[in-house]
């Protein structure tokens, strides 16, 4: 508990009931702050705009203050990665020791030895599969018209879907949105769009569930429908229950403008 008085303080009361002060004519009020919550979005950055340290000597002369923090943090990561390799080596050595022990521990360890071999084989396969996956993913990235435009400024958006001129014409400044769900499951829809999003040309590529075995939902379209934007979602009968989410993008720029989440409950009703 602290009290503050922005002028020379009167004497404090010394004992019970003692009130030696004269009342001031008017109490002081706080000013409203410019804001009362942090800025959380991606554009956030901090700086030392009015720091009392500004222009003052480093509080700790031993500190290396000339290095930008970004470099500092990158170095931390670099250290971390190098450390990772040290850890790896250590674990490899431990693995080798464990393998030696298994080999020396007699016939009863045969089952465990085969388990270790299986583990190593699977780890190797993991790398190979991951390599294939990365190959596919990066190929996808390379084919991305947006990425191409970043790499080659001025390049046309080849491969990008042409804008739906009919949709443009029909939608105009559409602000109403209708939702059509074709599903035998009980389904809840949560659509969140950034403020100012035009409804005339939106797209959702797919909705994914946390369970990697659940197939993504792909039958999702935004289309104009008599002056209203229509979000149509079709949920196949065998679709597993769960939470499916995906990103809504502007069909022309491919810029993300919101999220779409479907909660599919239970099994399909007959």
């Amino acid at each position: 508990m602290a009290t503050t008085i922005p002028e020379p303080a009167p004497h404090e009361p010394r004992g019970p009931g003692e009130t030696p002060h004269e009342a001031k004519p008017e109490r002081l009020r706080r000013e409203d702050p410019k804001r009362s919550s942090p800025i959380r979005n991606a554009t956030t950055y901090f700086r030392d705009s009015h720091s009392w340290d500004e222009g003052a000597p480093d509080p700790d002369p031993r500190g290396d203050t000339k290095v930008p923090l970004s470099e500092t943090l990158d170095d931390v990561i670099t250290h971390g990665v190098h450390l990772g390799y040290k850890v790896i080596e250590e674990h490899i050595l431990k693995g080798q020791r464990a393998a030696r022990q298994l080999r020396q521990s007699g016939p009863e360890a045969e089952a465990e030895r085969s388990e270790l071999d299986a583990f190593v084989d699977q780890a190797q396969r993991l790398y190979q599969d991951l390599g294939t996956l990365c190959f596919d993913a990066i190929e996808t990235l390379v084919r991305s018209p947006v990425l191409l435009r970043i790499i080659q400024p001025g390049a046309p958006l080849q491969g990008a879907d042409p804008p739906d001129t009919a949709r443009d014409a029909a939608a105009g400044s559409t602000t109403r949105l209708a939702i059509e769900i074709v599903s035998r499951h009980r389904t809840r829809v949560d659509l969140r769009l950034d403020a100012g999003t035009h409804l005339r040309a939106l797209r959702v590529h797919a909705l994914h569930a946390p369970d990697p075995n659940a197939p993504p939902l792909t039958a999702i379209t935004f289309r104009p429908d008599r002056g209203t934007a229509l979000l149509a979602v079709s949920v196949p009968d065998p679709q597993p229950a769960g939470l499916y989410s995906g990103v809504v993008v502007d069909a022309e720029s491919n810029e993300p403008v919101g999220t779409l989440t479907l909660l599919i409950a239970g099994s399909a009703e007959p």
Binding site: Y45, F46, S51, D58, T65, S70, T72, L73, D75, V76
Partner: peptide, 13 residues
């Protein structure tokens, strides 16, 4: 990590 906690920061985020 390079630097010390409480060192002045730069404008990098």
């Amino acid at each position: 990590g390079k630097g010390l906690p409480g060192d002045p920061l730069t404008a990098h985020n």
